[in-house]
Design a protein around this nucleic acid. Structure first.
Length: 592
RNA sequence: CGGGGUGUAGCGCAGAGGGCAGCGCGCCGCGUUUGGGACGCGGAGGUCGACGGUUCAAGUCCGUCCACCCCGACCA
């Protein structure tokens, strides 16, 4: 490709709205342009990289038996009503009506179209197992897109769906994806870890997220260096440090003026936070008899802990949780700042499992300016549910080995879910077993977003001058810089560069050729910004020494290649760069 | 949805005591220069986010709305 005719222009200055390196560099290098919040145009350079990423995914998924297909972006609402997600998923689903007023859906994932198609196509156990996938556009109307390609509303995803007759089969395909996903990320030179995760709106009963660890990530993970435990904070367990048992003491009301927070309270009463209990008020949207109902929930954790809303939502089966408003809290007789479950009956009370084991806690008195001392669960109030709803944090004890957990941030670049039979049962996607009995197909679903992956690779591989892309996903393998220099020498250099450009391509290399009439500084800076792995420089200076200069983007060193060895030598370097990546894939083990 | 911020040329920004719409980069032309973002001369490019109001006169004052960014809520 000649840069003189490339659509993208590089920018000297960083776009003002970019806060993280990948966003800034991808825009500056001319890879992407923004159309609206969370909606980007993919320019030619990025398109080539994304195509390479997608080809890697294609190869890897094909290698574990995947069949590529293409499912529609626009779905009739019926298939989403059938699985219940038309009602279950909120405003992040794109909906519109066609000309006849029929409800339509913009695909945010494709379980619905999968079960719709397999309910007719899969009839016999003889057709299973099967793995189907596509690479296709999704729309998720995220309330807050941000960080360039990291969190967008429209994106391309490789999503595969495994179909099996039983859970053993699903487990095999799940494990195959687990390994394959590491291979895909390794081929893109992106370091990732797999963590246990919440199943969220996808349903199912086992899920892993593939996380690229970086401070710009939005997910918090808890990792144990000692035993390898790793989980998204949303579901992370930890060993709670209980207090020594005490004899329950008599409840006592004390004045605690202007002590509305745990911090105020502990200071005023001179008690540690773990001697208090904390109430979090939430409005939970629950599905009852097909209708959405909002219920006020009092979630109670020990004062030194935080509520984990995901754990709570999963425990009570809530579709959504939002903070309750003051009037909603007062309506049941509670007093914000001094609230407790004592004496309330119109509220759903959920307590963390540590609370019943802890005696003589401080709790609100539901009266402005007063708290109770020595509140004991069971004696003073009862809960609808006692379950783990506390959030793990940095330094908490690992649930497996007890060593302190580390909290780190990460970007979710891929996920795998064991869906089970939930979707197939909803859509009646069944097959006949050997006994001629109908059974639901056992499903798994597996996704990787290609744009987020590209952005993550840029986060990992860049310097002050630009991107440093691994050869497997760089738009071009070779960046050929022609420095024509003085008028007297320009003709000779140009001729040489043109010939070299042709020969490199004939040698099977992908070349970005800077044939523009620009100064050397501009060309070098653009080459660094765009980030192709091998740079060749042709100039009168190099030709006088009998060759061209070669420099790898990730190294400082420059070398001269003699004129008659250029193509072979570059070929060799390029092959080596591929080999460094592709021959170092590791085997991973998924613990059961 | 709550809090904060920003909308002026392709990009980055000034102009804010109402009175001819500017600078740098980029872009076009000519010439000089030529191994790490060169220089000179000449040029093109704007419904100042939108609508409404105040005024002889609005980029500037007032109102409403919209878009984008950041934090939170939320989310894969």
């Amino acid at each position: 490709m000649r840069m003189s005719s490339l659509l993208s222009q590089t920018l000297r200055e960083a776009p003002s709205d970019a806060e993280i390196p990948s966003h800034s560099l991808l825009v500056r290098a001319g890879y992407i342009r923004q159309l609206a919040a969370g909606i980007f145009t993919v320019m030619p350079l990025a398109k080539r990289s994304l195509t390479k990423i997608e080809d890697i995914m294609r190869e890897e998924i094909n290698a574990i038996g995947g069949q590529e297909m293409a499912m529609p972006v626009i779905h009739p609402a019926e298939i989403w009503k059938k699985t219940g997600r038309w009602g279950k998923v909120g405003p992040e689903m794109g909906r519109f009506q066609d000309r006849n007023g029929r409800d339509m859906v913009l695909a945010m994932t494709h379980e619905e179209t999968v079960v719709d198609v397999i309910k007719d196509e899969i009839q016999s156990y003889r057709q299973l197992p099967m793995l189907i996938y596509h690479i296709q556009t999704k729309w998720r109307d995220d309330p807050r897109p941000r960080a360039g390609l990291i969190r967008v509303r429209e994106f391309t995803m490789k999503d595969s769906y495994s179909l099996d007759r039983d859970w053993e089969g699903l487990d095999r395909q799940y494990r195959a994806h687990y390994q394959t996903y590491f291979d895909i990320f390794n081929r893109c030179k992106l370091p990732v870890i797999a963590v246990e995760s919440d199943v969220g709106m996808m349903g199912g009963n086992m899920a892993h997220e593939f996380m690229y660890l970086t401070p710009v990530g939005e997910d918090t993970l808890l990792l144990c260096d000692q035993c390898g435990y790793s989980a998204n904070r949303q579901i992370a367990d930890f060993q709670k440090q209980g207090s020594p048992p005490e004899e329950p003491l008599e409840r006592e009301k004390v004045a605690t003026p202007a002590a509305k927070t745990i911090a105020d309270l502990t200071e005023y009463l001179d008690l540690p936070a773990r001697k208090t209990s904390k109430v979090v008020f939430l409005m939970a949207t629950m599905l009852e008899d097909g209708e959405d109902v909002e219920k006020l929930v009092f979630a109670i954790v020990r004062g030194d802990m935080d509520l984990n809303e995901t754990k709570l939502a999963n425990a009570i089966g809530a579709k959504q949780l939002r903070p309750a408003e003051e009037n909603e809290i007062k309506a049941v007789g509670a007093v914000p700042g001094y609230a407790s479950p004592i004496g309330l009956d119109q509220v759903m009370i959920v307590v963390d499992d540590l609370i019943p084991e802890t005696q003589n806690l401080v709790a609100g008195a539901n009266e402005e300016g007063y708290h109770f001392l020595n509140v004991n669960y069971g004696r003073d109030y009862q809960a609808e549910m006692v379950v783990d709803i506390a959030a793990a944090k940095d330094g908490d004890a690992c649930p497996r080995c007890g060593e302190p957990l580390n909290a780190v941030r990460g970007i979710e670049v891929g996920n795998i879910f064991k869906l089970g039979t939930w979707y197939s049962e909803a859509a009646d996607a069944t097959f006949q077993n050997e006994q001629g009995k109908e059974e639901p197909v056992v499903m798994g679903s597996y996704g990787i977003g290609s744009g987020r992956l590209l952005a993550s690779v840029v986060e990992e591989h860049h310097d002050d001058y630009g991107m440093i892309l691994p050869i497997t996903i760089a738009p071009y393998e070779v960046h050929l810089v022609s420095l024509e220099g003085k008028k007297s020498e320009a003709e000779e250099v140009r001729k040489f560069s043109e010939k070299l450009y042709r020969e490199l391509r004939e040698g099977g290399l992908e070349v970005l050729y800077d044939d523009r009439d620009e100064s050397p500084g501009v060309k070098f800076n653009d080459a660094d910004l765009i980030g192709c792995p091998v740079r060749l420089t042709v100039g009168s200076r190099s030709l006088e020494k009998g060759g061209v200069e070669v420099k790898l983007r990730h190294q400082k060193e420059r070398n001269l290649i003699p004129v008659d060895e250029i193509v072979d030598s570059v070929r060799e370097k390029v092959d080596q760069l591929y080999a460094d990546i592709n021959e170092n894939l590791e085997e991973v083990e998924l613990e059961s």
